[in-house]
Every structure is written in C-alpha cells, then in structure tokens.
Simulated assay, not measured.
Amino acid sequence: MNLIKTTSKTNPLYVGEFRSQQECAHLTANFRKSFPDEITSVNIKRSVIQNLLDNENVSGIRFMYGLGDKNDAASRVIILMPCNFTMQGNIPNVIFNKSGFYTHNGDMISLDDACGKQVNHVFRMKSQNPEIAYTKILRGYFLGKAGLLELINRVTDEYVSYNFGYDITSNSTLKPVIRSIDGDDDGLDHGKLCPPDTDCGMESDITCVATYVAEYYAANKEGELNILRGFRDIVLNENLASAAIEKYYTISASIMEQLYKDVAKTEVAQTLYHNYFKTSVASLVADDKAQAFRIFEECMQYLTDKYLYQ
C-alpha cells in the first residue's frame, strides 16, 4: 500500500474547482438523459458539511453513494465521510468515528449500515451495466475543504444541492456538481472519483495485510502469499457484492495507516501471523474456503477494534 504525505501538488485541501452555470447544466442534462430512472439530485444540509469541516484534521469529504433499497431510486442516500491528509493513491483516508457517519439529511448511521447502503448502490449500478466490474463501479466523490468552505459561504439556504452529472466527453464519467438549491450560480466539481482511474482502495491488493505480516514471519513468504492471492481472486471476488467486502475496502487503508504508525507493530504482525495468516493458509490448503473467509472476517474485526477509531 502506497501511503504518501501531502505536498503542494497532492494536498487534498485544494481538490475541487468551480464550473460555470452552463457547464453544470450540460452535465446534469446528460445525466437525466442517460439515467432517466434515477433521481437527479439530493439536498445536503449545509450545517452537516460545516460541522465536519470544523475539524482541523479534516482535509475534505468523500460523498459516498448509497440506497436504502436497491430497487428504489428514491431511497438514494449520500453518506458524508470526512478524510484526513494521508493519501492512498490520489484520495485521502477516511476518518472513522464510533458513532458513525452523517447522511445528507443530518442523520447518523453506523459503519455497517453505511456499507449496506453502499452495496445496494453497487447492486443497482451493476444491474444497469452488467459488463462493468464491481471494483469499477463509482461509489462516491471526494472534494477538498477549501472549495467546500467557499461553496457553503456562498450559499445562504439551509441546504446545498448535490446534482448528479454525466460527462460524455471524458469516458462517459459520472461527475456531480454541488451548488445552491436554485442553481443560479457556479457549481463545485473537479473532485476525485472513488474509485478513480488510479487506485483509491478498490483495486488495491486485498492481501495487503498478509503481505505486511509475511515480511516479518513467513518462512515461505511467496508460496503462502500466492495461496492467499488465489483465495482473493476466487473467494473474495465471489463476495464482492457484499457488505463485508464493501466494509473491507472502506476501512483497509485507514487501518494500514494506523498499523504502520504502531510502535508495537512487530508484535502485532506476530499475532496476525499465528492467529490468522497461518490458519487461513491451512484452511485453503485443506480446500475449506468457507473457513478461510471466516478467518478473514475475524482478522478484519481484530484490526478494526485495534486501529480504526484512533
């Protein structure tokens, strides 16, 4: 996993620029034409955005897409995930709070509920485009603090409008714009797609924890890692449209960030190797994929409890 510190060129604070009213209208019209069964916008409370940005450790927000019901377009939910300054690929890591995440209307939902809603979104998008890989389905959009603060300072209403757009000139990419409810001003766009063309976690090696552990303890590192990679390719890919895997992709980068910082990381690596790594490999050698998947879930729960809410 490639974690990088921010520079003047990578600083997530400044991700996002304003589009003209004409450009915004063009994007939203394309979306309505291309996705006639989907809602075109969601209103987000300004106070929710402001509350998240008041935290000095927040560089911006991932606006993640969810559905209460995968068969009901009207159940669209925007989940606001604040991010720190540590970059994986070109999007910063999520900051997790035990109380969960805000939705567009100010409700607080748990991590598990958020991942369940995200899976519903993934299912709906997959049904509309069966050829697209699960890891390529757009799950959200990151915008930096600077542009978001400028936006909410421009708007006087209680809500801002998150408008879904579709840019047919750039590989048919979904590109939302955020602006005032009446739409009589420029809209904030030019954020980072998640997952983007470059990595934001969905294409990262799902064995990254195992790779880290193997560096410390595995006697037959490449042989054991190849077994786990085979497990990833066969079993985990079969479960990609599940809340468990969606949760993994949501939390893994933040967990690894904290693991790298842990002064006792060698001891943690030893625990991971003996309690999860070896037993998972043994299960796979015995062709017990179900047990290997249970061990994977137990391992992620251990790491979640230890690192996620720091």
Rank of each mutant, 00 (worst) to 15 (best):
F31V: 01
A74Y: 06
R154S: 11
S41L: 08
Q301N: 09
V155Y: 01
I39A: 07
Q270I: 03
S99C: 05
N220L: 07
Q128H: 15
A214C: 10
D113R: 07
S99R: 05
T86G: 04
F18C: 02
Q258E: 14
I91H: 01
E203W: 13
A114E: 08
S204F: 03
Y248V: 00
L80H: 01
S75I: 02
Q88I: 13
S242L: 02
N57W: 11
N30F: 06
Y216L: 11
T169G: 01
D262A: 03
G100T: 12
T250A: 04
T103W: 04
R32H: 08
S252V: 12
F231A: 00
R62N: 11
I168A: 15
D157I: 03
A253Q: 14
I245Q: 01
N51S: 15
E238H: 02
T271D: 05
I168W: 03
A290C: 10
K261S: 10
A25Q: 13
D288V: 02
K306E: 08
K70M: 06
A25S: 14
Y216C: 04
G100E: 06
I95D: 03
K265F: 04
L67N: 09
Q258W: 12
H26L: 14
V263R: 06
L240H: 01
F63Y: 15
F293K: 00
N2V: 02
T40W: 01
K278D: 02
I4R: 14
S180P: 05
Y276C: 00
G68L: 11
A282D: 15
A264I: 10
G106N: 00
F96Q: 08
S99T: 15
N11D: 13
A241Q: 04
H190M: 13
D233Y: 00
S280C: 13
L193P: 07
N43V: 07
L148I: 02
T173I: 05
N129Y: 01
S280N: 14
C200S: 15
E246K: 03
S20W: 07
F123I: 14
I4S: 10
E150F: 11
F164C: 08
N220S: 09
V155H: 01
A282N: 13
I152M: 05
P82F: 09
E17W: 06
N220R: 11
L193V: 07
L174K: 08
R294Y: 10
N55H: 06
Q118K: 15
S99I: 09
D305P: 01
N120K: 03
I255L: 14
L53F: 03
P36L: 02
Y307F: 15
S99W: 01
G144E: 05
R229G: 00
S254D: 05
A29V: 04
